[in-house]
Design a protein around this nucleic acid. Structure first.
Lengths: 219, 219
DNA sequence: CCTCCTTTTGACCATCTGGTCTAAAGGGAT
DNA sequence: ATCCCTTTAGACCAGATGGTCAAAAGGAGG
């Protein structure tokens, strides 16, 4: 249904209209995080933003354009958060790096929980729809994760016998769902503890036999 | 939008119309597994099934009724598969039991991949919608898993220090996404190997330090 | 043949969808 | 005041939506 991925404001080299119009940004985020692309009503969004048809279509090609622009802005915000962090902290081991990313992700999710809902919903859209989006933004997470895991193996942090493919899949699904698993109304410390535990499980397993290194005593 | 959860054929104590009408079953499954409830077109479903409006509404109250009836039939089929298996195999340890369930789930997914797509999509519908469904069918998986994990802890198969809540969440998300992680066009043996590996990760982790028991040698 | 009940048929309904288009309003610059 | 371009405004469109309804067809028993 949606045409090629293009954003009017980018082709005209102007600013993202969603930056300037807070009401529209809010309305679009609300709608697209609660309903699928097809189910969300453009009319409702426009009305909620206090706009009218003409003004909307003056700035956007169509509904898809709005959706892409929304993804663009949210992606930029998250990227900024991550980049700011990356500048401060150099890369450590694999598991520490993953943990940092998970915590940052959760912090962002607490700031804007609808973004995670939105991107999770995006993954359930049909394939052609997702392809349009991927042709616009690419599909980082999968590739980045895979590379990180291979590096972790090379550095001897990850057991070489686990398949990169499976490990990538495990981390990818857990990271996209993590904000559902770990309650959002926790304080920072509790979140940290939960993430620690999750990483510990991925590192050492849940089985009684395999000892976690931080507690070498009894067991 | 959808009203209370009721199925006309159940209130009239007749057979599930989806059992008798293969075309309708097929059309509904196809539609609801590819699109969300709101996005799927009832008109299209009816047309694809070679029905007409009147006949449809003679058997169902509304669109939701069809959806519930579809879930009902699919749930029954999966339940039958699991029950047949449970009769043959007594319960072993926790991880073996989970593995069996995962394999059965994957086998069912290969028989009817659209069912998993459907139930995964259902989880992304809005909350009131999910509540209608839960009021009809309950929410087994979460409770069952939690109980299994507590039992596993009691029997000393799971490390007592991992939180039941987190472990439940991990297994729940991995089990619902497993048919996406493990390629469906594998033969039975390859699937078995992949599931083995996944379970091994959950048992002993991916970290190089923690040794898996099946390979005690070097590393 | 008639009767009675179940089932089928499809025209029809109000409502909503994303999107178009013409007309007018704003607002600088001259 | 006049010009010109950007922006707003909202009536309007064809098409699709889930759902209703009165009428006809089918079929079994008498």
């Amino acid at each position: 249904m949606p045409a090629a991925g293009r954003m009017k404001w980018r082709e005209e080299e102007t600013a993202n209209p969603l930056e300037g119009n807070a009401a529209l940004f809010e309305a679009a985020l609300e709608a697209f995080s609660e309903k699928s692309f097809g189910e969300a009503s453009l009319n409702d969004i426009i009305k909620a933003a206090g706009l009218n048809k003409g003004s909307f279509y003056y700035r956007f090609y169509d509904k898809m354009d709005l959706y892409l622009s929304l993804l663009y802005r949210l992606g930029m915000e998250k990227l900024k958060l991550f980049e700011r962090y990356d500048h401060e902290n150099a890369a450590e081991g694999f598991f520490e790096s993953i943990k940092d990313k998970a915590i940052l992700g959760l912090r962002f999710a607490r700031m804007e929980p609808r973004y995670n809902a939105l991107s999770r919903r995006m993954l359930t859209e049909n394939e052609t729809f997702r392809n349009v989006i991927r042709s616009c933004f690419g599909d980082m997470t999968q590739d980045v994760l895979s590379a990180m895991i291979q590096e972790g193996k090379a550095k001897g942090q990850i057991d070489a016998s686990v398949s990169t493919h499976l490990a990538t899949a495990v981390f990818a699904t857990l990271l996209t769902q993590i904000d559902l698993m770990i309650s959002p109304n926790m304080d920072d410390q509790a979140i940290l503890a939960q993430v620690d535990e999750l990483i510990a499980i991925l590192k050492h397993g849940m089985c009684t036999n395999s000892a976690a290194p931080k507690d070498e005593s009894g067991r």
